[in-house]
Design a protein around this nucleic acid. Structure first.
Length: 600
RNA sequence: GCUUUGGUAGCUCAGUUGGAUAGAGUGUCUGGCUACGAACCAGAAGGUCGGGGGUUCGAAUCCUCCCCAGAGCGCCA
């Protein structure tokens, strides 16, 4: 577990900067009030304040902020929760920014904050721009996010797409939260599958020379290799014709994997994903790096020769007890020990993976994240065990699994099949719906829940489609700014920064400001749990608040953003609208989606 | 059999890491455009949070045992 300290600065000590995270600051205010209560004896010493929270109450009618302090402290302090709450309430109301503090329910303390506190949010957003909400949570710690890592044997398909979008958004989120992020792709170019690739390309090469070829079981018959076969012909001519594998396999393998990685890179690029590092599995072989990683484990007494028990209940028919070199992963939380060497003396696939993660640890990352498809779920425990052992428990590894994507067309499920030609690639999806829609939709579900992707619904323009709904809100703000210009009201951000925000005193406007104030807090909770989908849901809610306020302008003209003949009021209201657009742009930026200036 | 991820409104899903009367969209019902997009908004109805037990001031959330579904389970990566 990582120790996530929040710097304990106080409201007073934070005067130089505008309030960034109101919830954190309110909590700090509460804690310092509690400190004074300890100092004057109304609370005993030595209490832990860790469990005390300051959160928006679920029901807005309860107030702006709620704290559970009194209930958390009641038992250890040996006092009644409501008594503690009453005392705390009188302390807190001494601060000018706290208008009222009411005790409710079993001991909740509901605070109401002065309108200025909320109005400042808009001003902070306008000053900081899309950096508003950037958090110090990461404290510059180095984190490595590994994702996609598809075998270099073909184009990326929909399953990879979800992993790519998720990993990329997660990386951006962590960056926004103050981590130093490395985006990394592990190329599985060391195993038998790249030999299969090479043989398949060789067949296409023969075909390019006019030969009739058949693709036997265990080769890749996909059309995408035709061009690679031709490129090989262009490169080597007829040099490999009528030659045995020993003459060409190595070269063709390297040539083919390079070609596949070019393909994959361009697929990723179409989605807007740019990796920092492509790490080759092959580079681990013959360089002593696998041996070094395993030696490290051996030095820790975690490598031994042994025989595994067959899995209970589902015994493979050809099961034979075998002595293998095993990693004692059970000492680090796994269920059974795992083989690192095959009985024929070759490495299992696990061995280079250990070496790869050993390398990540040695590169000095403070934290590792792997994004796997759900079909690799069985791999989680052993990988965590390996990193735990290799780093002596000092480097946490979080593994996020992305569940399957179920495809729909016209509301009907749509099966992928290579043979039937309905194999859906990343490129197919991006070409049909665009990278922005693809990315947003892929993030409208938790990573560990299955995702329905309907080619028709994602392009629909309605509230049912969150992509559209959020973009629409952003476009509406752009529209307001345009219209303001036409009405002769200056509405550039620099002017808006000087607007008199005290004019934003309507409940509906304050409600929107409150929603904006949640953004920094949301960034932190999303980053803490490595869950970028929270950003997508927040943006949807923020857009909903905005559309609501907009429509109230139909009946209540004083809520319209542009007030004819009143530049000062208009500017205050447009400042609010711009703040919404900025936060939407920042959120979409994390998701890798371009904000729309107008709807088509 | 074991591991792992899910099970929340008719349907599709959130749920701020243990907080107050569990929320959205969609569907059903009702209402709203003489403003920059009604491509929108407001309201109503709809729940044994898969089931039982436990932990405590307090549980959809934590522990435990069951039920159902997906993914995986030594020499493929």
């Amino acid at each position: 577990m990582i120790d996530w300290h929040c710097p304990r600065d106080t409201w007073g000590a934070n005067k130089d900067t505008r309030p960034m995270n109101l919830f954190a600051e309110t909590r700090t205010l509460i804690l310092s009030a509690l400190d004074t209560m300890v100092a004057d004896g109304s609370l005993p010493e030595g209490l832990s304040f860790d469990a005390i929270t300051a959160e928006p109450p679920r029901d807005a009618a309860h107030g702006d902020m709620a704290t559970n302090a009194a209930m958390v402290l009641a038992k250890p302090a040996g006092q009644k929760p409501r008594d503690i709450a009453e005392t705390l309430a009188t302390r807190l109301t001494q601060d000018a920014r706290v208008i009222s503090a009411e005790v409710a329910g079993p001991g909740f303390l509901n605070l109401r904050l002065a309108p200025e506190v909320w109005q400042q949010i808009a001003s902070a957003v306008l000053s900081d721009g899309t950096d508003f909400g950037r958090a110090a949570l990461g404290q510059g710690k180095k984190v490595n996010v590994e994702y996609v890592s598809a075998n270099p044997t073909g184009p990326l398909h929909v399953g990879h797409t979800r992993g790519a979008v998720f990993g990329d958004a997660l990386a951006s989120l962590l960056d926004f939260a103050g981590f130093e992020v490395t985006r990394e792709y592990y190329i599985n170019d060391g195993g038998a599958q790249v030999d299969v690739l090479a043989r398949s390309v060789y067949l296409r090469y023969l075909e390019a020379h006019g030969q009739e070829v058949a693709f036997p079981e265990g080769t890749y018959p996909g059309d995408y290799l035709i061009a690679v076969g031709e490129a090989l012909k262009a490169k080597v001519g007829d040099a490999y014709l009528d030659k045995g594998e020993q003459y060409w396999l190595e070269d063709v393998r390297a040539f083919s994997t390079d070609a596949m990685m070019d393909l994959i890179r361009s697929d990723l690029s179409a989605l807007g994903v740019e990796m920092d590092v492509f790490y080759s599995e092959k580079s681990l072989y013959g360089t002593g790096r696998i041996e070094a990683a395993l030696q490290d484990l051996k030095d820790k007494g975690l490598i031994y020769e042994g025989v595994l028990e067959p899995p209970k209940g589902k015994k493979p028919e050809d099961w034979e007890p075998r002595e293998q070199t095993l990693f004692k992963s059970t000492e680090h939380g796994d269920d059974v020990d795992r083989p690192v060497m095959k009985s024929d003396g070759g490495w299992t696939y696990f061995a280079p993976d250990i070496a790869y993660h050993y390398d990540k640890v040695q590169r000095g990352f403070d934290m590792l994240i792997d994004v796997f498809g759900a079909d690799h779920g069985g791999y989680v425990k052993r990988m965590k065990a390996a990193v735990s052992a290799l780093s002596g428990g000092s480097v946490p590894l979080d593994i996020k699994l992305t569940q399957l994507v179920k495809l729909f067309k016209n509301g009907a499920p749509f099966k992928m099949s290579k043979r039937a030609g309905t194999f859906v690639t990343l490129r197919d999806v991006v070409d049909q719906v665009g990278p922005d829609v693809t990315r947003f939709v892929m993030l409208t579900r938790k990573n560990d829940a299955m995702l329905d992707f309907d080619f028709d619904k994602v392009l629909e323009q309605s509230r049912e489609n969150p992509v559209f709904y959020v973009q629409y809100a952003h476009a509406r703000v752009a529209s307001v700014v345009r219209k303001a210009g036409e009405a002769g009201i200056a509405a550039d951000d620099a002017t808006l920064r000087g607007a008199d925000l005290s004019k934003l005193d309507h409940d509906a406007e304050l409600a929107l400001l409150r929603k904006l104030a949640e953004w920094p807090r949301l960034v932190e909770t999303a980053a803490r749990s490595n869950e970028p989908h929270r950003v997508a849901f927040y943006l949807y809610e923020l857009a909903g608040e905005f559309h609501g306020l907009w429509n109230r302008g139909n009946d209540e003209t004083q809520l319209r953003f542009i007030q004819e003949g009143d530049a000062a009021t208009s500017q205050a209201k447009i400042a609010l609208a711009r703040a919404v657009a900025i936060v939407i742009a920042a959120g979409l930026g994390i998701l890798g989606v371009t904000p729309a200036q107008q709807m088509r």
